[in-house]
Simulated assay, not measured.
Amino acid sequence: MVALHSPHGKDTHMTTTTSTLTTIGLDELIALGSLQTRVDRKYALTSGDAAMALALVDAGCTRVLEIDGVTDLGYTSVYLDTDALDTYLLAARDRRRRFKVRSRTYESNGASFLEVKTRRGDRTVKDRLPGQHLQNGRLGDEGAAFVARTLRLAGVRTDAVRTLSASLRVDYRRVTLFHEPTASRVTIDSGLTWWDMRTGAWLARPDLSIIETKTTGRAVGMDRLLWSMGHRPDRISKYATALAAMHPHLPQNKWRPVLKQHFVDLSCA
């Protein structure tokens, strides 16, 4: 496989409009709206449409996360999978017992967390362990024990834990909004660049933004705003959809509409 876009050169991530919003600090955001168990709705938009939606949010009841004076924050996530891509295939086939494991690092302060996402009905449950737990692309003992324990409590088989290794890295920028009336959060991710950590291939989508609403269940203001703009929730995963785009031989029907709209110009060799 060859590289399809260059990740170098001019930074074209979405310029966000947050100057009219009151800010909120990280500790307060976690205290008021951690939402570790939640319903997620995701929308794949052009960066222009995402910026328009951000400019239209109700400043009277919406606050923006700010850390050290910055609201457009850098993130790096490394997703883990088995050699057979079991976590990808569980997602592609919509298995009820699917899960996702990643290591996330925050550019603002260098903090890292090991995160495990599982499903409980229509809700996503996220458990996290502070610290960097990857050693040469694999889980250390503490990290492996944490993942195994989390999966076991979620009713997921744990035999694949020791075979997990770094599969895909994604770098991006994120704006996080807090909607006070519903204690819900909205994230706007842009400047997305992926690296396949096994093949060295990479992919950048500078004009793609992903908006995600994280709620206790009911639609919130951003959902209704996006609906009014003609957008409906999409099936998209920063891990699985990008991997499908980079490896067209993988099953990808679940993400085909997003692939067709936002990755249609991709070709592989």
Rank of each mutant, 00 (worst) to 15 (best):
L266Y: 02
D207V: 08
R149D: 12
W255G: 07
D81G: 08
R119G: 03
V147N: 07
K214W: 03
S267F: 05
L208T: 12
R63H: 13
T241A: 11
T18S: 02
T16D: 03
D49R: 14
R123D: 03
K260D: 15
R102F: 00
L65R: 02
D68R: 11
V156A: 07
R157P: 04
R173A: 10
L151M: 12
D122H: 07
R162F: 02
L250P: 08
V101A: 02
G191H: 07
I30H: 09
T76V: 13
G33E: 02
I30P: 00
L45A: 11
S267A: 14
A111K: 13
L259P: 09
T124N: 01
L45D: 08
R235P: 00
G217A: 12
S103H: 06
R41V: 08
W255A: 09
R174L: 05
A166I: 06
P206K: 06
R235F: 01
T176Y: 15
L151K: 11
T82D: 08
A55S: 15
R128V: 00
H179L: 12
F113D: 00
R205C: 04
Q36K: 02
C61F: 05
I24K: 12
E115P: 00
T215C: 11
Y88V: 07
T213D: 10
R102M: 02
C61Y: 05
R38C: 02
D196H: 05
M52T: 15
T17M: 05
A154D: 00
G143C: 07
Q36V: 01
L168F: 05
A145K: 13
V2F: 13
I211K: 05
T20S: 13
S47W: 03
A204F: 01
T199S: 15
